[in-house]
Design a binder for these strands. Structure first.
Lengths: 158, 158
DNA sequence: TGACTAACCATGAATTCCCATGCTATCCCA
DNA sequence: TGGGATAGCATGGGAATTCATGGTTAGTCA
């Protein structure tokens, strides 16, 4: 399965390391330029713009995110704005051999992380939350979807 | 037959494993990307939004469930809500060679499962219930249909 | 030389794989 | 039509991996 699915809770150790869930690692490797056989998995982290959480991207997914830039003149202010918004606060990383990443201190602070974190899959990307906040957000999202009767109609029951 | 039909009761063993009914397995294989000849059957489990039971999806069915995402801008709140609601609490699995799955502890708790479970087919998906609760729900559904005089006539929608 | 970071190694727990068994329904042959 | 053989299915348990996590050493920059 090439998508990030499910929620996984892992511990943040004394050095600020967390294991990336195994299933997420396999997605990251598959969506990397290096290929699936790689020993480590590349990924990109950035603070979410709409929530107090960290957003995780695959290498290829993040590259695609920057693609719209090609529609603008290299020296336009739009190009400048977009480039900065997307790349300015992103930070590329690799897991270590054990499949862990070291979360940057500023992102830890931004998401209010303490000793445990949850990884929540959202299809092409995933999010890293402080467990309680993540649970709240998940419940909120489900409620919103139900309230809006968003088009889950295709073959599904609301 | 490409649909989930009937109710089947199976045991949950000490390790939290249950055999997926053979007829359900064949549906799962048919509706997978791997093809029918596969040794194991892929499926997706998620907590039901309206009942204390576990919902089971085929691989293709679940992909269709996520398809509406493409109608929204990647950074819209709708996309955000839907992605989290659908993917956040789903969990993809495969049967083992014997046709069993290991139910995640949180789903077991959510559905109140103990030592036996019933699989109830509901056409494109199926549900996993604690036997007594499942029986109650089945009776309730039948009563509701009768009370509403829902004619199950072709295409009739109460 | 000292602090800090990154690679390496070690361990327990949980999960997956594999083999074995009883049961039931089906098929085949008399 | 009856009885025995056969194959498929649900179930049980043990062994081998994988995974998450903790600690230790080596390496680097100031």
């Amino acid at each position: 399965m090439g998508l990030f699915i499910g929620t996984h809770q892992n511990k943040l150790d004394a050095k600020g390391r967390v294991s990336v869930p195994a299933s997420f690692r396999s997605v990251l490797k598959k969506m990397s330029n290096a290929g699936e056989g790689a020993l480590v998995a590349p990924l990109v982290l950035r603070p979410s713009h709409q929530h107090p959480c960290i957003e995780g991207w695959t290498e290829k997914g993040f590259e695609a995110l920057g693609a719209p830039l090609d529609n603008y003149d290299q020296f336009s202010t739009e190009h400048d704005d977009i480039a900065m918004a997307i790349f300015g606060d992103a930070c590329p990383m690799e897991t270590d051999k054990e499949g862990r990443i070291q979360l940057p201190a500023d992102l830890v602070a931004y998401a209010g992380l303490t000793d445990s974190v949850v990884f929540i899959g959202t299809s092409k990307t995933f999010q890293i939350w402080e467990p309680a906040a993540g649970a709240r957000r998940l419940a909120e999202a489900k409620a919103a979807v139900r309230a809006a009767q968003m088009t889950l109609r295709t073959g599904a029951r609301a």
